[in-house]
């Protein structure tokens, strides 16, 4: 469903992604792991059209999207829940969610809103509250809920567990696994290597802007080199 070939991207002259290839199949969770600053967020921004593609190709659902605008990419169903949430602080929870369907799935807005509220009952309780005054965990729920309002074909989650308490991190991974069990394809960028490999089907380890290691998540979890580098075992 998503196929990235030899992607080169970055910020102006600065190349961050240098020849990365990656595939996500329908219904899969694909984990993208790697050290801080390796370019995971840069990859996500490039996939969603916020950053220009320097070279290489991005195919989504059979169409090339590497010159498409962010709003066209959203219309196709590639939905990116960004690192740092980027919710609308000056608007209430309900309005934030409504804007999730600004470009896609608008006719089914009411039904999807109900679905998001049943997944995140906390958001229903706070529907009228300004998003800027939510707790960090609630803001993360809101960001994911806003993404789900667009009925994503592929959902990109950039560090959804960042800044959450250990209990909430557990809940977050359970939620991601549950969405996936309902058929949602997910590209998961995470620092929590163990839990990510636990729920993912396939994983990619980034180094120096390209993929250093990839394969079935269970195999990578058992890989001695990886265990040394990321788990200190």
């Amino acid at each position: 469903m998503l196929e990235v070939r030899n992607l080169v991207a970055g910020y102006g002259e600065v190349e961050v992604i240098r020849g990365l290839s990656l595939t996500v199949a329908a219904g899969q969770i694909v984990a993208v792991l790697g050290a801080n600053g390796v370019g995971k967020t840069t990859l996500n921004k490039t996939l969603s059209g916020l950053l220009p593609v320097g070279a290489g190709e991005i195919h989504f659902d059979g169409a090339r999207i590497d010159t498409a605008s962010p709003s066209e990419i959203v219309a196709r169903g590639l939905i990116h829940v960004p690192e740092g949430r980027k919710i609308f602080p000056n608007m209430n929870v309900r309005e934030n969610l409504e804007l999730g369907s600004y470009r896609r799935a608008k006719p089914r807005r009411a039904g999807n809103l109900e679905r998001v509220f049943s997944i995140f009952p906390r958001l229903r309780e706070r529907a009228g509250q300004y998003a800027g005054s939510l707790s960090g965990g609630e803001q993360q729920m809101l960001a994911i809920g806003r993404g789900m309002m667009a009925e994503p074909r592929l959902l990109i989650l950039d560090e959804p567990s960042l800044g959450l308490s250990p209990l909430l991190v557990e809940e977050m991974f359970a939620l991601i696994a549950r969405l996936n069990a309902e058929g949602q394809a997910i590209l998961l960028v995470e620092q929590n290597v163990v839990q990510s490999l636990d729920i993912a089907g396939t994983a990619y380890i980034l180094e120096n802007g390209a993929c250093a290691l990839s394969g079935p998540a269970a195999e990578l979890a058992a890989n001695p080199a990886l265990r040394r580098a990321y788990l200190g075992l």
Binding site: L50, S71, I79, V81, R85, F88, P89, N90, R103
Partner: peptide, 21 residues
């Protein structure tokens, strides 16, 4: 929706782009 998009862009441009605005 247009008005909400205006308010969204005012405070959070990147979030707005990612919502397809």
């Amino acid at each position: 929706d247009a008005g909400k998009a205006i308010r969204a862009v005012a405070k959070e441009k990147m979030g707005a782009s990612l919502a397809g605005i």
